[in-house]
């Protein structure tokens, strides 16, 4: 310090915090998907070239590079293609551990997405399990995946491995 009574030592670190504000838009196709969630349904899009159905669709076919324009309403049920049991606590965790994170292939879709699985003990989850979405109350539906509370077993027999092996 200027008076010579330094106890701080030399500077070795510099804090350079950055904060930036953006206006995010998910685009046309993902907005449709999110608006579908607001109505309590899963909306996907089919590629006119390869016929694959994407949910959520980002507006183009990642295989063919063409715009996806045909909207497809998908079922409320699907198949667990793979899963993991989360036992590790982390900052911001909203769900009590252990819980199951599953990749779910909705009926009619060619792309799985990640969902929370509940109403089943963690040691009974298995690949091929048939599950259904449980939605929040109608008044609480919003254009967000938060409208899906979780998935749970729907009671149907497990799907045959051949029906989902392409989606692992």
């Amino acid at each position: 310090m200027a008076d010579g009574t330094t106890d701080q030592g030399p500077v070795t670190m510099l804090a350079t915090p950055i904060s930036l504000d953006f206006e995010f838009t998910p685009g046309v196709a993902q907005s449709k998907f999110l608006r579908g969630l607001e109505r309590g349904e899963f909306l996907g899009q089919r590629c006119g070239t390869c016929g694959q159905v994407y949910v959520p669709s980002r507006g183009t076919c990642p295989t063919d590079g063409v715009a996806t324009t045909e909207d497809v309403v998908l079922g409320n049920s699907g198949t667990v293609t793979t899963y993991c049991v989360v036992n590790v606590p982390f900052a911001g965790q909203a769900i009590e551990i252990p819980y199951i994170c599953a990749q779910i292939l909705l009926d009619g879709a060619n792309l799985s997405f990640m969902g929370l699985l509940q109403e089943i003990p963690t040691d009974q989850i298995r690949m091929g399990m048939r599950v259904e979405a449980v939605w929040v109350d109608e008044a609480e539906l919003i254009p967000s995946l938060a409208s899906v509370k979780y998935f749970r077993p729907n009671g149907e027999p497990d799907a045959d491995y051949d029906t989902y092996k392409e989606y692992l």
Partner: peptide, 15 residues
């Protein structure tokens, strides 16, 4: 471009 995401804006250009 108030509507499209990156891929949606780019796709017609690539095509």
């Amino acid at each position: 471009d108030n509507e499209r995401n990156e891929a949606e804006g780019l796709q017609p250009v690539i095509a």
